[in-house]
Design a protein around this nucleic acid. Sequence first.
DNA 1: GGTTGACCTAAAGTTAGCTTTAGGTATTAT
DNA 2: ATAATACCTAAAGCTAACTTTAGGTCAACC
Lengths: 149, 149
Amino acid sequence: MSQPTYTIGQIADKFNLSISTLRYYDKEGLFPNMKRQSGIRRFSKNEIETLRLIECLKASGLEIKDIKQFIDWTLKGPSTYEQRKQLFETRKKIIEKEMERLQKIHNVLEFKCWYYDTAIKDGNEDRLQQMLPDGLPITIQELYNKGHK
Amino acid sequence: MSQPTYTIGQIADKFNLSISTLRYYDKEGLFPNMKRQSGIRRFSKNEIETLRLIECLKASGLEIKDIKQFIDWTLKGPSTYEQRKQLFETRKKIIEKEMERLQKIHNVLEFKCWYYDTAIKDGNEDRLQQMLPDGLPITIQELYNKGHK
DNA sequence: GGTTGACCTAAAGTTAGCTTTAGGTATTAT
DNA sequence: ATAATACCTAAAGCTAACTTTAGGTCAACC
């Protein structure tokens, strides 16, 4: 029994990507095992898995050429397990740093929301400027480190 | 007493930005009140505050032209408090969504690390492929929703 | 007095990740 | 039979956010 396969248009719908994006990924070598039927791409389970991988690695900030590198490792077999694991470990650390960074940004944004809430109530920023005589630096710095070790 | 001011080079060091980036921001109109002394930019507290704002808004994914829009609102005075507050509220929501997204990515990455740990121990992916007979879709989907409402 | 270093401008160049264009094939619907 | 639809390629074009280049001013040091 052969696996079900999908056309580029079906995959584009399924993954909410444009057809040209999928062709671009293909051109970059991200689907090295993709088959064709009279010139037409057939996406199978393998390519769908690869697309999930691409979404994950892209979301972790990896560039296409480095995703390609990973794909090449999978083609080389078990000798590259260690490198592949290392890549995921590195990505995990990067995501963790990114989440810390976003938490800091979130703290600043909360402060800004409060600031403008107050300004709207007061009709001006006079009281706020008095509360923060040297501008925001110190306060922001504190907010910046809230929710942080 | 006049405020201390800094040259573009000093600010570049302080903020770990390149001089050309600062000039680019200036060209884009992000420092509308910056003074010059015989042609040379003098960054004062005001511009330093703006730079902190830029870092925060950029980190929340805002484009330069929209940061410029915000700067223009501040120049217009209290009548734009509401718009400014709204911008920060929107950014806050975007950051929250982004953190949820990163959490999901993190879950997938943890799974991938475990996967390759196991593959390294086994020397192959046979056992893993048996454990996940239909490939990863369902499992990934579950992982994807872990740590999520 | 010459050279070094920090600043200036305007404009062209760069990069990643697509998207669009131009031109073509093959199948399906009317 | 013709027109719409879905696919194909190669190559040019796009965008944001910078960076680089080329050419110039000015003050300070040797």
